[in-house]
Write a protein that binds this DNA or RNA. Structure first.
Lengths: 148, 148
DNA sequence: TGATATAGACAACCAAGTTGTCTAATCTGG
DNA sequence: CCAGATTAGACAACTTGGTTGTCTATATCA
């Protein structure tokens, strides 16, 4: 079947909820990662996550409400709102990584180390191929045009 | 990263669009499969796909609009609307399977037959584990309660 | 027969996206 | 140096797939 990753992400979400981050979804973690690795404002975040800047701004604002990031006007360019990950944001991220690690370990127990690595390699190939064209927003919902 | 299956499903969607089924999403195919393997009305479909009956009814009605299923009152129990997959519905499904087959073959070329099988086995384990508790609606959106 | 359960419809809502329009700030080029 | 273009971000309206909650019609059970 095809629900593999969904499964993983869902479990991580539930587990994170159990550990005191009840209102976090995969998207949020995803966004935090993008911010940590360089996206400093809404537009950049949008580009980094292949989403319109409006959607990114929305994600940011919920992240801000929940206390995971803070925003302040960029002194150098006053159009921009510079993003910073808060303490709580950082602990969410490390907790998230820990949870993932645990899930991965569990799976490794179930299935064997080699098998798991093999599987990861395959999946990497799969996403690697189209990482090239992570452009076009709306790959999952709207689009469907298939860029002829 | 973790977008492996998404990737696969998205590509299949795009490819199907290209082949004359432009308004089909993974959900729809998923629902058709559930119907084919026994779900005869909205409530059953909902149960089968771990979704409320209302959501299922909605999916059905778009599927009906697009001409993939038809509905008629069940003569034996006039509360029920019996579902039938139309000709077009069947061809969608086989086209869908063909596309998937092709994608799988492509991946097999890229990565080798054994590796692919191994990966599939791992993923099967992953989803298999929690197939047991495919109950609780809302695993992906609302929930988060983690059934304490 | 009457209480209860089930099927499905309808309405209101949510989350995460999308467009499209708009203002404010910055950049660029004549 | 200033006019025009570009960019950042906000706001509003809409879409999809899902959720409750309420309601009617039909079945079923005691």
């Amino acid at each position: 079947m095809l629900a593999g990753f969904r499964t993983l992400a869902d479990r991580a979400t539930v587990e994170l909820g159990r550990r005191g981050y009840p209102d976090v979804r995969p998207v949020h973690d995803f966004a935090l990662h993008a911010i940590r690795s360089g996206a400093q404002n809404a537009s950049e975040l949008g580009r980094a996550t292949s989403v319109t800047k409006q959607a990114a701004a929305r994600t940011i604002s919920t992240l801000e409400q929940r206390g995971y990031v803070s925003r302040q006007v960029d002194p150098a360019d006053r159009r921009k709102m510079r993003l910073m990950i808060t303490e709580r944001g950082h602990s969410l991220m490390s907790e998230g990584e820990a949870v993932f690690e645990e899930l991965r370990n569990q799976l490794e127990l179930d299935v064997g180390a080699e098998a798991l690595e093999q599987a990861e390699a395959v999946l990497r190939t799969l996403v690697g191929e189209n990482a090239v064209r992570l452009d076009s927003p709306g790959w999952s919902t709207g689009g469907l045009d298939g860029d002829e």
